[in-house]
Amino acid sequence: MPNSKKLVEEIKKYFEKRFGLSRKIWGHHIIILRNEIGWLINPQLYDWIFNIGNKAYSLGIPFVRLLPKGIKPTSWGLIFMGREITRNIIELGLEDLRGLLYRGRIKGSRDIETGYVALGYNGEIIGCGFYKDGVLENQIPKARRKSLLEILPQLK
């Protein structure tokens, strides 16, 4: 991928600025760009990545999607970072969570800049959302959303 070093640096800066991730994180993890995805891997995997070519279905965990309009954090990536995330978390109550999962969006003005946010529930990061003009959109992938909906009745 062209300019991959520059793009990886951009991703790191984005996470630091948007989600308050510490630079120290990158001492333990690296980002590899493949198939429009920024994969988060441990440094030990690095040697293999180049030998394996395009045969791998998955490298570590998908951390960001590289969309034409910019970087989109994945729910897997945000959940993985969990308590390292200190900024732009929208903590949801049960009713808000239910609404977001069923309807895909909920209204409610918040003091947050437009962009991707980490969805929180009960002190845990549960995935990615997008906030703009008083509307929060769900970005949790369909299969994960479905399995979260299945456990909703058990949540308090």
Binding site: N42, L45, W48, I49, K55, Y57, S58, I61, I79
Partner: peptide, 27 residues
């Protein structure tokens, strides 16, 4: 397999789909 790797946060794992009988011997 991938869903469980992501869910458990196993960033040290790569996934391939080779037939085990012909898994490449160069690795």
């Amino acid at each position: 397999l991938m869903a469980n790797i992501y869910r458990m946060g196993a960033v040290s794992v790569i996934v391939t789909g080779y037939n085990g009988l012909s898994f490449p011997q160069k690795f």
